[in-house]
């Protein structure tokens, strides 16, 4: 035996640490290969990966709470929808306009509200989400109200359009990977460390020279831009947008994904989005009991992996540790 049990288990643990993310990536690969309707489900999962990755920067890294991220997805979605379908802009230009509008909006909203703490900030962001929804309903001359906007072209540059399901899914996968990579780089930068620091203690962060307010605002704007991009991708994939698609259910879904995947971890958003996206499909045969099984599954995940699936290795470690002494007793 060249490998001691300790090194084997530590190698296993290292492998286990990446297993959930690899599994999620495997599902994406499977969907690309399979090409059935799973493409749609995984495609939505990837769009949500981006949305949740943004939320994770604000909530997981910076420790703040926002219930209003749907507002920024809505701005991206409607900017893309209106500018491409109504005014015939190229998708990329429309997406950029959406991002700029979102960033401005996030700044204007974030500047006053980020002085609020805890529940007040959460309530303020909640209100923003509700207001944008109401605007989407009422501003009929632009948004077409509940009737929605259809005829939104597929993504493409110049004459090249992403029409096939597979091409779209591959594109979404690339976008999701880029988002997560950006999130990883951000987390391991000076800025990212400062965010995690201020989420731990704003005073301690300040005493180290961190400009807490400015960083919170910047994190808020970055998370809003992530949301805007996900909104843009959504309308180009579906070709249609209506207010119901950017309502509170989006926020609830994103929160579920964030906590199930693992808040504060870089790959958590991908894992959460894929698992929560696929869960209803894998239990579709339960029909009327689908919601019940879905709820039960969520509760089980959160009980047995309270840090989310991304930190499943911690749970296994803990289990092994509690069992370890029993071995030592044996002769």
């Amino acid at each position: 035996m060249t490998n001691s049990p300790a090194t084997i288990s530590s190698k296993l643990m290292a492998a286990l640490r990446h297993a959930p993310a690899i599994a999620a990536a495997g599902m994406v690969a499977y969907a690309i290969a399979d090409g059935g309707y799973i493409v749609t489900v995984v495609g939505f999962g990837l769009i949500y990966t981006i949305f949740v990755a943004g939320l994770n920067i604000f909530m997981g890294y910076a420790g703040q709470t926002s219930f209003g991220q749907n507002a920024f997805a809505a701005i991206g979605a409607y900017a893309s929808a209106v500018l491409t379908a109504t005014y015939g802009w190229p998708p990329l230009l429309a997406a950029l306009a959406g991002i700029v509008a979102t960033a401005i909006c996030a700044f204007v909203i974030g500047y006053p509200t980020l002085r609020l703490k805890g529940h007040y900030l959460a309530m303020a962001t909640l209100a923003i989400g509700l207001i944008i929804y109401e605007v989407a309903v009422q501003w009929q001359s632009v948004t077409n109200g509940y009737m929605g906007i259809s005829g939104i072209p597929a993504l493409g540059i110049g004459h090249y359009e992403l029409l096939s399901d597979r091409a779209q899914l591959i594109f979404l996968a690339i976008m999701a990977v880029l988002s997560l990579a950006a999130s990883w780089l951000l987390r391991h930068s000076r800025f990212g460390r400062a965010l995690v620091a201020l989420s731990g203690s704003e005073d301690a962060a300040r005493a180290l020279g961190i400009n807490v307010r400015q960083y919170k605002l910047t994190a808020f704007i970055i998370s809003a831009i992530y949301a805007s991009i996900s909104g843009t991708l959504f309308v180009h994939i579906v070709g249609f947008i209506s207010p119901e698609m950017i309502g509170m259910n989006m926020v609830i879904l994103a929160f579920t994904m964030l906590y199930v995947g693992g808040i504060g971890t870089t790959t958590g958003p991908l894992i959460g989005a894929i698992v929560i996206g696929l869960l209803p499909e894998s239990i579709r045969s339960f029909k009327d009991y689908q919601d019940l099984v879905y709820g039960a599954a969520l509760i089980l995940i959160l009980i047995y992996a309270p840090g989310g699936i991304a930190s499943l290795d911690q749970v296994v470690k803990k289990l092994l540790r509690t069992k370890a002494p029993a071995k030592e007793v044996a002769p």
């Binding site: 297993a19 690899i22 599994a23 599902m27 499977y30 894998s282 239990i283």
Partner: peptide, 10 residues
């Protein structure tokens, strides 16, 4: 790969 095979199985 556990999660993947679980979902695939499901």
């Amino acid at each position: 790969m556990k999660a993947a095979s679980f979902i695939a199985l499901a």
